[in-house]
Computed example of a mutant assay.
Amino acid sequence: MKTKGTHNYNVYILTNKAKTVLYTGVTNNLKDRLYFHNNPLPFLKTFTAKYKCFYLIYYENFFDIEDAIKREKQIKGKSRAKKEKTISDFNPEWKFLNDTI
């Protein structure tokens, strides 16, 4: 078992190529999670597969899962405009960050 403070969690936002759809999630392994979003199982009808949300545009790191889940819910509860501001403050050009992880 890992000691408190040694865990690594990420809250992240994905978008589609046209940047018209946003998906917010939380994971303990962002690189693997991006792989699974980009390579969904055949016939899997997930939100990200349906709307082709494969492009990472925002992420935050947390050491405590409760904090990460709280932040995920906070972001999900925001309006589209507030989500866009959160993304723009972190990634002003909305560059796809998949290759930086």
Rank of each mutant, 00 (worst) to 15 (best):
M1H: 14
K2V: 06
K2S: 00
T3G: 10
T3I: 08
G5L: 02
T6F: 06
T6H: 11
N8C: 06
N8R: 10
L14V: 02
T15G: 01
N16A: 04
N16C: 01
K17D: 09
K19F: 12
Y23A: 05
T24A: 11
T24E: 07
G25R: 12
G25F: 13
V26L: 02
T27C: 03
N28T: 04
L30R: 02
L30W: 07
K31L: 06
D32P: 00
D32S: 07
R33Q: 11
R33W: 04
Y35R: 08
Y35C: 06
F36M: 03
N38H: 05
N39G: 00
N39F: 01
N39R: 00
L41N: 09
P42N: 11
F43A: 04
F43Q: 01
F43L: 04
T46D: 08
T46M: 08
F47Y: 13
Y55E: 12
Y55S: 04
L56E: 14
L56I: 12
I57Q: 01
E60S: 13
E60T: 15
F62P: 14
F62S: 11
F63T: 15
F63H: 14
F63Q: 15
I65L: 12
E66T: 07
E66P: 06
A68I: 10
A68L: 13
E72T: 07
K73R: 15
Q74A: 07
K76F: 02
K78D: 10
A81L: 08
K83D: 00
K85S: 12
T86E: 14
D89Y: 02
D89Q: 11
N91E: 00
N91G: 00
E93Y: 04
W94Y: 05
L97C: 05
T100N: 10
I101E: 13
I101D: 03
